[in-house]
């Protein structure tokens, strides 16, 4: 039996973020919350292998109660159980504090039912940090493979897996002992269209909610703001440089516009490699 554990996060859909032009503040209103896309693919991979090998998929998330929607979506996608770790005291966590809470939670879930593989997304699109996965693996002292793009094999007997990892330069085929953690890119699995019975189950499903009160005993100093070494010191809007000159082809004609633009580029010396030395 294969037991996969998947860490999923709810994120604001960054493609929909707007800035109030007057105040320069972020308009959060109406920005939809979505399932972090990489996590969804990671979950799809876990479910795919559960269907192949038999077993179950447990999903875990740390966040406010609104994350329940995301955990229900995980059930819709084929997860069997879902846990939300949620407490006001966790608020304001940076990646170090987040990885602490997740690691302790996973440790506990592993005691209940030993885990063979832990799936994370390669990064969460709200912060794009890609830090929590390696952080959790470090805390649990587990082998980890980041940027996983394909699971070639999971051998529960021999306790090992063969996984492909994509880097900037090549694809590595890596053999790892179980239990292992993967942080997954989108190619790891396609997200299937959930069967109706799974959707119906998800709509009725209430994830188990764990808090500071238990069952995991968290160290108060390591969670939330207190457990976060970094703080946001200030926020601002990006600065814009001075714009350069605009040449309108309608006014001067295409030929002259291009000539002028190239002349400027040449005198700035950026065409020297193409045309020989700058004037």
């Amino acid at each position: 039996m294969f037991h996969a554990l998947v860490a999923v996060k709810q994120v604001p859909d960054t493609t929909n973020i707007r800035i109030d032009p007057e105040t320069g503040n972020l308009v959060r209103e109406g920005v939809p919350a979505i399932f972090n896309p990489y996590d969804a693919h990671a979950l799809a991979a876990a479910v795919e292998w559960k269907r192949k090998l038999g077993g179950k998929v447990t999903v875990v998330s740390m966040g406010p109660p609104s994350f329940i929607v995301t955990l229900r979506e995980a059930i819709e996608m084929g997860a069997d159980e879902a846990y939300l770790v949620s407490d006001r005291k966790f608020a304001g966590a940076d990646t170090l504090a987040t990885s602490y809470v997740l690691a302790e939670t996973i440790r506990r879930l592993n005691e209940q039912d030993p885990v063979d593989m832990i799936f994370f997304g390669k990064q969460a699109i709200d912060g794009d940090t890609a830090q929590v996965g390696p952080g959790v693996a470090t805390r649990l002292d587990l082998p980890i493979l980041t940027y996983a793009v394909k699971i070639r094999d999971i051998d529960l007997e021999a306790r090992k897996a063969i996984v492909e990892r994509k880097t900037e330069r090549w694809v590595e085929v890596v053999e790892l002992p179980l239990p292992v953690m993967l942080t997954c890119d989108k190619e790891i699995a396609e997200i299937p269209f959930a069967p109706l019975p799974d959707l119906i189950r998800s709509l009725k499903y209430d994830p188990e909610v764990w808090t500071m009160a238990g069952p995991v005993e968290f160290d108060r100093g390591q969670v939330g703001v207190r457990g976060s070494p970094t703080i946001v010191y200030k926020m601002g809007t990006p600065e814009l440089p001075e714009p350069g000159e605009k040449i309108n082809t309608r006014e001067v004609g295409v030929e002259a516009a291009v000539r002028e633009a190239l002349a400027k580029a040449e005198s700035a010396g950026v065409l020297s490699a193409v045309l020989g030395g700058a004037k």
Partner: peptide
Amino acid sequence: ATTLGRDLAGAIATASHTGLTAD
């Protein structure tokens, strides 16, 4: 913040119990 560096940075920061600002 390359594929290699991001992987490494998260692990070192956690092991050293310190903060890390990405990107």
